[in-house]
Every structure is written in structure tokens, then in C-alpha cells.
């Protein structure tokens, strides 16, 4: 973010410094939302649960660290390994939780289910009822995945939605939408793009995008 972006939180941030006093708490984050009514309610909820002895501030902090450490980079490692090792790919498709554990990824109570894109089938994930997502593998879902528009349209006009993501498929490819309604959480195993022969797993993982593991996009070698 630019140092002087004109938003009033810069002014608020500078207030304590003006008086030259050490800040008693963490510096104010550079976002406007924390002062909204929502942030006040979240703070009240947290403090009330701490006072009741249900949770502690340390537990909240630790939990945030755990969630922050997760993300699409973990799924990308899994996909890259599957591209390079056919035996691993078989295990990923048949025993997905154990296959992730092989790479040190603990999915906890998530039941992962992996769907493989092929020359004839393209898979795409949605949760029409809420926002189910493999959070222990890919992190917090993107805003578009949680949006009413995606949840409404992905099941009825998947090809139009794919086109909005810039994803065009050959005419002979079937689109298979997976509505994540219950206990499974889905990972799309994208197709390995041409032009990546001989690449290392690390190099491959770097081009495997989050959205390709949801099935909204394809993996491109120039990503």
C-alpha cells in the first residue's frame, strides 16, 4: 500500500505517534474495517468468550497462525507431485488424506475427495448451500467462491461462468460440476500443461494456481 493513500486511517494511525507515546497495543492495521460495527461485535464476542473461560486470547492467536499458514501452496505441492509420480497420483485419487499426509499435510477431520481433469472431462467445484471448501488444504476460500453469483450460477451455466474466468474448453470436453453439499471437500487435479516436460516439482508447483484447483481455470505454463 502506498504510504500516503489519503484514507483517514493514516490519520488515525498517526495520532498516537504525534504524542510520541509508545503504543500500548499492536499498531493499528492498515484497513478500514476494524473500526466498523462488525469489528466491534467481533471484539465483544471474543472478550465475552474469554471472560467465560471458553477460549483464551493465546488460543485465538495460535489458531489464526495455523489458518494463515495454510494456502494454495499446499495444494500445489500435492498436484505437482501427482503430475510427476503416477503411483502417487493413484494414491491421491484413492486415499487422498493419506496421500497429503505423505507430504506432511495434515487435513485433520476433512475428508478430501480428488477429481481429475482429463482430455474429456473438466471438473469444477461449487457449494450452492454455503461455502464448503478444503480449507485445511487450500486455506480460506476466495471471495468469488463465496459470492451469491457463483453459488447461483455455477450449477446451471457452468460454461458461461468458466468463460467469465477466461477458461475456454475444447468442444469435446464434458463439464462436470461438483456441488459440495455434505461431508466431502474437493480438490480438482488440473491437467499438466504442455511445455512443462522435465520441469521439477518445485517449478511446477509455482504455476499451479488456486483457481485451477477449484476448476475455474486451467494451469498455464507461463503463469
Amino acid at each position: 500500500m502506498a504510504p500516503h493513500d489519503g484514507h483517514d486511517h493514516d490519520h488515525a494511525h498517526g495520532h498516537g505517534e504525534q504524542h510520541g507515546q509508545p503504543h500500548p497495543h499492536r499498531p493499528i492495521q492498515e484497513d478500514l474495517s476494524y473500526r466498523t460495527e462488525s469489528a466491534v461485535r467481533a471484539r465483544a464476542l471474543k472478550e465475552l468468550l474469554i471472560e467465560k473461560g471458553i477460549i483464551t486470547a493465546d488460543e485465538v492467536r495460535r489458531q489464526i497462525e495455523i489458518v494463515d499458514a495454510r494456502g494454495p501452496h499446499m495444494g500445489a505441492r500435492v498436484v505437482a507431485r501427482a503430475w510427476c509420480d503416477p503411483e502417487y497420483k493413484k494414491r491421491l485419487l484413492t486415499t487422498p488424506n493419506a496421500a497429503c499426509a505423505e507430504l506432511g499435510i495434515d487435513l485433520g477431520e476433512t475428508h478430501l475427495f480428488v477429481v481429475e481433469n482429463t482430455a474429456t472431462v473438466h471438473n469444477m467445484i461449487v457449494c450452492t448451500l454455503c461455502s464448503c471448501y478444503p480449507k485445511t488444504l487450500l486455506g480460506i476460500p476466495p471471495d468469488w467462491y463465496k459470492s451469491f453469483a457463483y453459488r447461483s450460477r455455477a450449477v446451471r451455466e457452468p460454461r458461461t461462468v468458466l468463460a467469465e474466468f477466461g477458461t475456454s474448453l475444447p468442444d469435446d470436453v464434458e463439464v462436470r460440476v461438483h456441488d459440495s453439499t455434505a461431508d466431502l471437500r474437493y480438490l480438482v487435479l488440473p491437467r499438466r500443461p504442455e511445455g512443462t516436460e522435465g520441469w521439477s516439482e518445485e517449478r511446477l508447483a509455482a504455476i499451479i494456481s488456486r483457481d485451477s484447483m477449484i476448476g475455474a481455470t486451467l494451469v498455464r505454463p507461463d503463469a
Partner: peptide, 9 residues
Amino acid sequence: RPDDSIDIE
């Protein structure tokens, strides 16, 4: 396409 499908739990 006529063979497009949806899988649901």
C-alpha cells in the same frame, strides 16, 4: 453439451 453433468453428495 448434452453430456455435461453434476455430481452431488
